[in-house]
Amino acid sequence: MAERLLFFLLALIVVSTAVGVVTNRNPVRSALLLVANFFSLALLYFLLSAQFLGVLQIIVYAGAIMVLFLFVIMLLNLGSPEPATFSEQGYRRPLAWLIALGMFALLVSQALVVAGTPPAQADPQVGTARTIGYALFTEWSFAVVVVGVLLTVGVIGSILLARRRSA
């Protein structure tokens, strides 16, 4: 019962901060709401017995990715609120509504499918670093190497993009 209460509280925070992120005109406020969103999402992961994922969500997303977002805001000098200047083409708004409503309908339909069934009890060990380690370095070891390549590409790409005039 306490768990369910906690879930609804967290879900409320997650949804309201997410709405705040996209509706806020001030990019700095949006970024701060995104931090709150990442944190409450991490707590939701804990509720789902995905402890390691929850901790990583805080370390990587709420820590590092947010710093990157803030630097982009400062880099582009978006600190002060200003009206949106990009042209609003006729088809964009209906298209956005269509996609959003479609996603919502999809979510609701899936929620209705599982609504009747009793909640499955997740194995409490499923989300620990130990279980994930076993999976990563035995069954999914190829994926780990691919991720290594991807990270190296990230290093090279960001350096290439950030270097300015020097050839």
Binding site: F52, V67, L68, F137, L151, G154, S158, A162
Partner: peptide, 25 residues
């Protein structure tokens, strides 16, 4: 406006942060 060095440093930090995340387990 901030120099791009900050951004670059943050980017490189994230990449090695994610690397460490893979090494923990």
């Amino acid at each position: 406006r901030f120099p791009i060095h900050f951004y670059l440093t943050a980017m490189l930090f994230i990449i090695f942060d994610v690397e460490v995340a893979f090494l923990y387990p």
